[in-house]
Every structure is written in structure tokens, then in C-alpha cells.
């Protein structure tokens, strides 16, 4: 249960991050001036496309977790059958994953997409293992997931610039 809550929190944080970065915008269009309303309409379409892409990515990642790890529960299965079953599960994954990346790439940068992909792959994995393997997530797992996500963000994001110049007092 703890795992599901953490996963939902991660997904929610992604949506909130996109709202702050301006990609998603849910202001009420009726309050806007007339000249802005056309813009609002395109924003509405953009919201719809981004939300669709995000949902597709999330589903793709849950299916991917199933394809990668579901066979581990059936230890008696021969390896060749396990490979073919996993590969068959991968088809719906690719069916969702490739169009989602194309749709998302119209509005989001490749960096944003890749960070979202990393967050969703961890969240999808947590959801899948909690449901299918009935595993509880430990605090240790949570710490290493968060460390992983922070590292992945640093790897994918363009260099963060911090201004080290402090104002000096005139002598």
C-alpha cells in the first residue's frame, strides 16, 4: 500500500511540475478577454495532447514492468517460453510508447520527455510489483529510488547554472 501511495505521489508530482513549467495550463477560459480566447482553445488542445501522451506513457511503462518481471513469478517455465511471452507483452508496450513519444515531442523537449519516462518507469514498476508480487516497498527502496531519480534528472537536464557572484561592499 505504501508503494502505491509513493507511486501516485511521483505521478502527481510530474503533473504539477508540468503545470509550473507552463506546458499544462488549466485556467478558466471564460474569464479571459475575447482576443485571448483563440489562444485558450489551442492551449486546451495542447493540454489534451499532453495528458493523452502522459497516460499512454504510464500505461506503456506498467506493461513494460509486466513484460520484464512477470515471468519471474513462474519459475517452472522454460526460459524460451518466458522470453516469447515477454516479447508478446512488449507489442502493446511499443504500440503505446512510440506514438506517445511522438505526440509528446510536439510540445515537450526531449529532456522533459526522458525525465518523465524515468519517473513513470519507476512508478509503473512500483505499481506492478505491489499488485502482482504483493510486495511491500521498504524505506530503503524508497531512498534509492529517489536517489536514482535525482541522478537521472542531473544526467538529462541541461547544465543548471548557479550564480556564485556575491555583491561586494565597496571599499
Amino acid at each position: 500500500m505504501f508503494g502505491i501511495i509513493v507511486a501516485l505521489f511521483m505521478i502527481g508530482a510530474t503533473y504539477i511540475y508540468l503545470m509550473f513549467s507552463g506546458a499544462l495550463d488549466f485556467d478558466n477560459p471564460d474569464k479571459m478577454e475575447r482576443s485571448y480566447q483563440i489562444n485558450r482553445r489551442t492551449q486546451g488542445r495542447k493540454n489534451k495532447d499532453i495528458l493523452k501522451a502522459l497516460t499512454m506513457l504510464l500505461l506503456a511503462n506498467i506493461i513494460m514492468a509486466a513484460a520484464w518481471y512477470a515471468h519471474l513469478r513462474f519459475a517452472a517455465l522454460p526460459i524460451s517460453i518466458a522470453i516469447l511471452m515477454s516479447w508478446a507483452l512488449a507489442l502493446p508496450e511499443y504500440w503505446l510508447h512510440v506514438p506517445a513519444n511522438r505526440k509528446g515531442h510536439a510540445y515537450l523537449t526531449a529532456v522533459q520527455l526522458r525525465v518523465i519516462q524515468t519517473i513513470f518507469t519507476v512508478a509503473g514498476f512500483i505499481i506492478f510489483t505491489t499488485v502482482f508480487f504483493a510486495q511491500n516497498m521498504s524505506f530503503k527502496d524508497l531512498i534509492s529510488y529517489l536517489c536514482l531519480l535525482a541522478g537521472a534528472y542531473l544526467v538529462f537536464s541541461p547544465p543548471i547554472k548557479i550564480n556564485f557572484k556575491f555583491r561586494r561592499r565597496d571599499k
Partner: peptide
């Protein structure tokens, strides 16, 4: 298909002494 051949073989051999989150984090 080639991805899954290697991934499934590796995780199948290691599962048992390596737990699921350990598999996932190494994969990432």
C-alpha cells in the same frame, strides 16, 4: 526480441538472490 532474450535470461538467473527492486535499479 533480442532485448528480451538477454533481459529475461539475466533476470531469471539472478532472481532469488537478487530482489526485484535491486533488478530494477541496476537496469535503470
Amino acid at each position: 526480441l533480442f532485448e528480451y532474450i538477454f533481459h529475461v535470461t539475466g533476470s531469471r538467473m539472478a532472481y532469488g538472490e537478487v530482489t526485484l527492486p535491486q533488478l530494477k535499479i541496476l537496469q535503470e
